[in-house]
């Protein structure tokens, strides 16, 4: 049996509680989260035949500074195209947005420990995680940058994805009009999350 001899029980307990409170206090500082409900995501596909682009400025994002965990989600239907018919086909034929209403990312800023959250100059970030589009998950990793303006975290990233990786079939007649790789740009301004 495991037994500790303590000269003064109460003294020990007092210290313990202080330690516990400190831990609790520390963890609340580090558990600080930042968020946005109106992040910007833009994609474009460019071929000699046609340029297709759309944007969505209702991207949701939460970043946990303690762990570097970052999550994003966008409603597919909110993507706006200049051409209404493209928007309809995007939802109906490719993304099947009534079946798969959201596109999301769940991952981590892997170098969060090296990031200074006071710095106003751009700092490189490494991001890794799982991107879910059209109900299909794929691991992705990309770079971005991050800087602070007036207590808000500004972040940008860009990467390419291939529709076929996400089970999005493109029929022969339009194959020349849709790029093999779709370029995605993301811009975020995250503010502290207070309950």
């Amino acid at each position: 049996m495991f037994y500790i001899i303590v000269p003064n029980k109460h003294y020990f307990m007092k210290n313990l509680f202080i330690i516990l409170f400190c831990i609790a206090g520390l963890s609340t500082i580090h558990a600080q989260k930042y968020f946005t409900r109106d992040g910007f995501v833009h994609f474009y596909s460019e071929t000699p035949m046609e340029t297709i682009e759309a944007d969505n400025n209702k991207l949701n994002c939460v970043l946990d500074l303690a762990t570097g965990n970052i999550q994003l989600a966008a409603l597919v239907k909110v993507f706006h195209f200049d051409r209404a018919l493209m928007e309809e086909h995007f939802n109906e034929n490719y993304m099947e947005s009534s079946k798969y209403p959201k596109a999301s990312f769940k991952g981590q800023i892997t170098n969060i420990a090296n990031i200074d959250f006071e710095e106003t100059e751009k700092q490189p970030v490494q991001i890794q995680g799982t991107l879910t589009i059209h109900g299909v998950q794929n691991a992705i990793s990309t770079q971005g940058s991050l800087w602070i303006v007036d207590g808000k975290i500004h972040a940008v990233t860009a990467f390419d994805i291939a529709p076929e990786d996400y089970g999005i079939k493109i029929p022969g007649v339009v194959r020349d009009k849709i790029a093999k790789n779709i370029h995605i740009d993301i811009k975020l301004v995250l503010q502290p999350f207070e309950k």
């Binding site: 989260k33 968020f35 409900r37 209702k58 949701n60 939460v62 970043l63 946990d64 762990t67 965990n69 970052i70 999550q71 994003l72 989600a73 409603l75 999301s104 999350f193």
Partner: peptide
């Protein structure tokens, strides 16, 4: 909590 950070934002 970390597993579903976005739930903090609630349903849109």
């Amino acid at each position: 909590q970390d597993d579903d950070l976005l739930s903090l934002l609630g349903e849109e």
